[in-house]
Design a protein around this nucleic acid. Structure first.
Length: 427
RNA sequence: GGAGAGAUAGCGAAGUGGUCAUAACGGGGCUGACUCGAAAUCAGUUUGUGCUAACGCACACGAGGGUUCGAAUCCCUCUCUCUCCGCCA
């Protein structure tokens, strides 16, 4: 959620910045400003009457004690009460409209982002060299099938298209990756959080998925009660709500958290042909980094998260590039996002394996997550950041493709050997 | 799943229709006094949100609704917590 005071002060700037994200907010901003004036008028009107009600109300016990007639006061009170009720109803309606509009506005992109979409993404740095082969390399679907790492067919049998089964060494490789990620984060002092995999609606609102992007997540409805829950689309949705409606102290920050969860996505669109196999499914495993910081510390935290993600990819021996996303390619909640992309040989080009974002105070405003300042005692919204560290669904395909040998076996990266107990995966 | 009890400030807790929500009382935190320092003692201070240029004003007693001139207090619905029983990895 954006700061309504900022919208009021500089509406044109807000419109211009949102335009960089491809959002034409002219109409909404106009409506918000209009409703805000209306809202404040109503507040003043109802508060004046309430103050009078309170003053009058205090006279009643006094009059009764003195044995005076209170019927005139009762009549007056009744009138005032009717008036406030009427104005309060209008106010509630206006509040609902403003909230709905405010929740619909995406975050402002940082000033230094280029406008527009993917075509304006800027690679910032490259690490290593693309892998070359002196034989015809197989794609990961064939490799994983031949080596018995992934059972695509039976995954589909169990749950339909978009689901696969890790088995044997495949399952162990997956698990080894997750352990490597988590152990690295623990060594960096992050707290491991294992959250529920079903969340209530409010979590989606805070993270920024709801109300606009509700179609992207699975909804669970239980016929015996009428509560809905939503399959967790990313641990970010859980972690962003961890301190919802709480006031933290300065000493609490930064909170450095890491979660492992499966992530469930409807991915309602059609798959692109170059995303076969396990690159895009309805369920995948991800280790997610998350930070709550003081506002002035979030840039620093962002750099830390990017570096951590890069180091994980480096540790696996991948060539990668780090890309600064253009405004429109950042998701709605985020002020800035860097992607780390690796090369999957069969897919020609780079694929995102990590996405690190700074939401600034956007999520904190939606979830009322604040920090109390030590000196002034004032409360302020915290900043939230998240980054994948990492998702396995593209790492594992890339790993088997890049590390394949001519005989169809796959070399295990050094950092994973202690988890897997072998240095080569063979048939 | 069944039965019962509860939800008030960071914590414990009083308050059963107006004058104890400027939230008693207790304890905790912070500041000051005393002290070489500390403990003890004494004094002061300590919720959030909205509106306002400001003084201030309004709102919030788990959430939402209702009754009433007026609700922490009465009624309804929901959520959560605790105790006992049942079931259970």
């Amino acid at each position: 959620m954006l700061d309504i005071r900022y919208i009021k002060e500089k509406p044109d700037e807000v419109i211009a910045r949102l335009a960089k994200k491809g959002k034409d907010a002219k109409e909404e901003i106009g409506q918000i400003l209009e409703l805000d004036v209306k809202r404040r008028d109503l507040i003043r009107a109802t508060e004046d009457i309430k103050a009078e009600q309170n003053r009058t109300n205090k006279l009643i016990p006094q009059y009764k004690k003195e044995g005076k007639d209170v019927s005139a006061i009762f009549a007056q009170m009744k009138e005032l009460s009717a008036k406030t009720k009427e104005i309060d109803e209008q106010l509630k309606e206006v509040d609902t409209q403003i909230t709905s509009l405010m929740l619909g506005l995406p975050n402002l992109p940082d000033e230094d982002l280029l406008p527009g979409g993917k075509e304006n993404n800027q690679p910032l740095r490259y690490f290593g060299e693309p892998k070359t082969f002196d034989f015809e390399p197989k794609n990961h679907v064939d490799l994983c099938t031949d080596l018995g790492l992934i059972d695509y067919d039976r995954g589909t049998k169990l749950s339909g298209s978009g689901f696969w089964i890790y088995r044997g060494m495949g399952a162990r490789l997956e698990w080894a990756l997750l352990n490597y990620f988590i152990d690295t984060h623990l060594a960096d002092g992050y707290e491991l959080i294992l959250p529920p995999h079903m969340l209530e609606y409010e979590c989606g609102v805070t993270a920024g998925q709801f109300p606009k992007f509700a179609d992207e997540v699975y909804k669970i409805e239980n016929p015996t009660d009428n509560r809905s829950r939503y399959m967790l689309p990313t641990a970010e949705a859980a972690l962003a709500s961890l301190y919802r409606n709480e006031i933290l102290t300065e000493a609490d920050l930064p909170k450095k958290l890491v979660s492992y969860t499966p992530c469930f996505r409807r991915e309602a669109g059609s798959y692109r042909s170059d995303e076969r196999g396990m690159v895009r499914g309805h369920q995948f495993n991800k280790v997610e980094m998350f930070q709550y910081t003081l506002p002035e510390k979030s840039d620093e935290a962002f750099d830390e998260l990017v570096m951590k993600a890069e180091n994980l990819v480096k540790g696996l021996g991948f060539h990668f590039r780090t890309v600064k996303l253009a405004a429109e390619d950042c998701s709605a909640s985020m002020a800035r996002t860097y992607d780390i992309e690796i090369n999957i040989p069969s897919m020609n080009g780079y694929k995102e394996v990590s996405s690190v974002s700074n939401a600034r105070d956007y999520q904190a405003r939606r979830g009322m997550i604040r920090v109390k300042r030590e000196g002034s005692g004032k409360t302020e919204f915290v900043h939230t950041l998240n980054g994948s560290g990492l998702a396995t669904s593209r790492i594992l395909p890339a790993l088997v493709e890049q590390n394949q040998l001519a005989d169809g076996s796959v070399v295990v990266p050094e950092v994973l050997r202690k988890y897997l107990g072998t240095d080569v995966i063979r048939k």
